[in-house]
Amino acid sequence: MKNEFLYFALRNRKLRLGLSVVLFFLLLTFVGPLLTDYDPWGYIGAPAQPPSAEHWFGTTTFGQDVFSQFVHGLGPAFLVGALGGGLATLIGTAIGFVAGYRGGWIDEILNMLTNIVIVIPTFAVLLIIAAYLEVRSFFIEAVFIGCTAWPWTARAVRAQTLSLRAREFVDLARISGMRASKIVAFEVAPNMMSYLVMVFILQFGGAILNAATLDFIGLGPTTGISLGLMMNYAVLWGALQLGMWWWFVPPGLAIALIVGALYITNVGLDEVFNPKLREK
């Protein structure tokens, strides 16, 4: 069974492509800072220089090294993605399991809560919280994103749990006197594992995009560098008008490639887990 998935996983072009792009950027996150001696904030060279052997991605209007900012900004993106996406998956799954398995008034209340959080535009809430917090960190950003991004996951997991709950093997477990938490953990969850993995990947990508948006309007972490912040500075300090493409192209391209690769990985995984979708 496992080998069959592995066989199709290795043969799936989308999965291979998506994973290699993500791994490439992950590698760059760790290796990149070793390749440059420049401090991401240091004024180390002539301002507004195009890419050269000295400065691979050129310099900003202040003479900061763009490559150094770029590789130091990749880490926070992955961090917020993993943390925020992970938290959102966790909350969504937990609420989905409880609502779907318990049913009754607990389901009603959780469903109401989910529907409310779905309707409230996440971004607006993040905006008003971030605006009033004077000191912000990547950790806080990730937690906020995680706490607001879970509803669609909860809804999907609840629907899946509902259908699984009606299966015979779950009934059997219940008759044998298993505790509800154990049934969910050992009978229901394993049957949704592939789905949960895909949910996490989508949440991961969503968290990266959310963080970039917040950083871009200046509500990101108050210390440290990030890809969204780079674009913020590029726009504020006239990179557009001066035609300094090397300043704003790398950060956005990295985000688009990472998140796009995650989405494509997801499609690939879907095909691996779901034989009906495999290419004919």
Partner: peptide, 14 residues
């Protein structure tokens, strides 16, 4: 997928 993964501000900047 790439378009969908593109941050809005970045496409705007480009």
């Amino acid at each position: 997928y790439l378009l969908n993964a593109t941050p809005y501000m970045w496409l705007g900047i480009l």
